[in-house]
């Protein structure tokens, strides 16, 4: 059986990959994908803590992840709709070029 810190390390690595992607990619969709990866890394941590925690019968971690998945689905739908609306307006999905608010 693998111990808790292995899973937490896995989650941390996934979170960092998502963060790096969200920070350095130019396409808005991939930025959103990076955010999704970060959310998933957090979910993994919840499940790992539920599994290795002192009270697995309380199901708190499971519940948190279920709600988190629901919220993430809503976030993805609205985020992608926003990106499509922005694309319609500017004809680009590159975050660098959407800079008309820049002083």
């Amino acid at each position: 059986m693998t111990s808790l810190d292995a899973y937490l390390l896995f989650g941390a690595l996934l979170f960092s990959i998502g963060l790096a992607g969200a920070l350095i990619r130019r396409n808005a969709i991939i930025v959103l994908v990076g955010i999704e990866l970060m959310l998933n890394a957090a979910n993994l941590n919840f499940i790992a803590f539920w599994r290795f925690g002192p009270h697995p019968e309380a199901l708190t971690g499971i519940m948190f992840v279920l709600f988190s998945i629901g919220v993430a689905a809503a976030e993805a739908a609205v985020g992608l709709a926003l990106i499509i609306a922005v694309y319609r307006h500017y004809r680009t999905a590159n975050v660098d070029q959407i800079d008309s608010m820049k002083g």
């Binding site: 941390a12 979170f15 960092s16 790096a20 350095i24 130019r26």
Partner: peptide, 21 residues
């Protein structure tokens, strides 16, 4: 495909991972 300031982003991500790990 990467933004021009990608080293900054990569450094931030690495820093976060280093701290967490």
């Amino acid at each position: 495909i990467f933004s021009p300031k990608w080293p900054v982003g990569a450094a931030v991500a690495l820093g976060v991972f280093g701290t967490l790990a």
